[in-house]
Write a protein that binds this DNA or RNA. Structure first.
Lengths: 244, 244
DNA sequence: CGTGGATTTGAGGACCTTCAAAAGCGGTGG
DNA sequence: CCACCGCTTTTGAAGGTCCTCAAATCCACG
């Protein structure tokens, strides 16, 4: 009762408490002290998004920036005739919607039920003005996003289907593990169709290659969305074509 | 004589005069006033790079940032087995080498004899500290680079060879023309091999598609590196698959 | 005018897609 | 609890786009 229609009473809004936020370690927040986080909290509002719902629609005015508290989000671009290219998969701690143009040039959709934190872009800008450290963090995040894009460009332009799928699994393994300790049990928040649209392939090709990796004992498909990596070295060498 | 070994005498160094720089309108410089430009000039050094020479090698420490005064540069990534993916073509006014990581994650090569302006990254950072406006410009440039990457990702992942080549020509046409007035005579600073490595194709495919566009009267190949667009609308529709 | 590299063109083949159908999986209701 | 339904995934067969290999042509340059 107290927090409905009480947008100005931030203290009474238990929904937004950055100090105890699960995404506290995210790029943006990790560089801030408690004082700054309070300012951040004052401008944020939490909400949930059901699986399959759009967070952002290509072309919409870019008024908000979102931080993912939990769940998975796919960022994509779709052509007039329906071809879809997924630009990236985001999860806990990642930001969605950071752009400098007036309108979003991509869509974003929840792959699972997700909890999010909404920031007004204007007030985020003010905050950046006030705390230059946030700017560094934003730049760092932008740079990380760019690195991911460069990897994707190389994969799409110059890797075979098998190399793309292997790279993709390696990537998941690193994201879900810790530094230098890749996870061997990876969870696929996305469908085969999402993977295909990310890797520039078809559902069938993705499925066939996963089957092939399975029969060569490189992976084990424990469930449709849970894969165990049995031979990481082998998977890595199948993924390569990477670094020079 | 006066300007050799006189690095502290900026006025006497005719090599670096941002006020009259051909790249004066570049993203970075266009937002600065004369005073700021003088500071910029104090930290910049001009030099030339022969065609085919590398400006940046993947893995090198990212100590410098370059602004292109004239000429064309290709940014690329190469895998262990020699596969190359060109990430972008840059020309007058563009910056090369902007990254936040300690080492470059890409190479850069001159496609033609080029004139460049070198900035020490450290002193550029100081400058940014001092003139927040420069930061905006840097962000803007980063965002533009990201937009280009997103377009490339879509092309590589979801466009046919013909669509990629058509998009590429349209892109050149816009870069070489003015706003809303695409150039109909485009100059190709890059070889077929470069185009292929940019579009994720082979030389032969690029050549075949250009020939096909020629015989369908969409373009005219005036020279191996000069193409005239005869039917822009047709080319545009061949390129599409674009916006939703 | 000859030479070497880039480009174009051709023929055949590989990889991935398309089309099609079977199998697996989760949820709902009888 | 199980049968049924819809959807996703897997698997198979055929086909197309693009690649590979090869040779001819073009072009710049000495």
């Amino acid at each position: 009762m107290t927090n409905r229609h009480a947008p100005f009473d931030q203290i009474a809004t238990p929904k937004v408490m950055c100090l105890s936020c699960p995404a506290r370690q995210s790029f943006l927040c990790s560089g801030l002290d408690d004082h700054q986080l309070q300012h951040l909290a004052a401008r944020a509002s939490r909400f949930e998004l059901m699986r399959g719902k759009n967070l952002i629609l290509e072309g919409d005015p870019s008024d908000n920036v979102y931080n993912i508290i939990s769940g998975d989000v796919a960022v994509s671009r779709v052509s007039a005739d329906g071809r879809r290219q997924i630009l990236g998969f985001l999860s806990k701690g990642d930001f969605v919607g950071l752009t400098l143009s007036e309108n979003y040039s991509f869509s974003a959709e929840a792959l699972s039920d997700a909890k999010l934190c909404r920031f007004d872009r204007r007030s985020l800008d003010e905050l950046v003005e006030r705390f230059p450290e946030m700017d560094r963090q934003l730049r760092r995040m932008g740079a990380a996003a760019m690195d991911a894009m460069l990897d994707l460009v190389f994969a799409l332009g110059r890797k075979t289907a098998q190399e793309r799928v292997a790279s993709f699994l390696i990537g998941l393994s690193h994201k879900q593990g810790n530094c230098d300790d890749p996870a061997l049990h990876v969870y696929l928040a996305m469908t085969r169709s999402d993977i295909a649209d990310y890797l520039g392939l078809t559902i069938e090709t993705v499925s066939r290659i996963l089957s092939r990796l399975k029969s060569s004992q490189v992976i084990r498909i424990k469930a449709v969305n849970r894969i165990e990596i049995l031979d990481l070295d082998q998977l890595q060498s199948l993924a390569d074509a990477d670094l020079s």
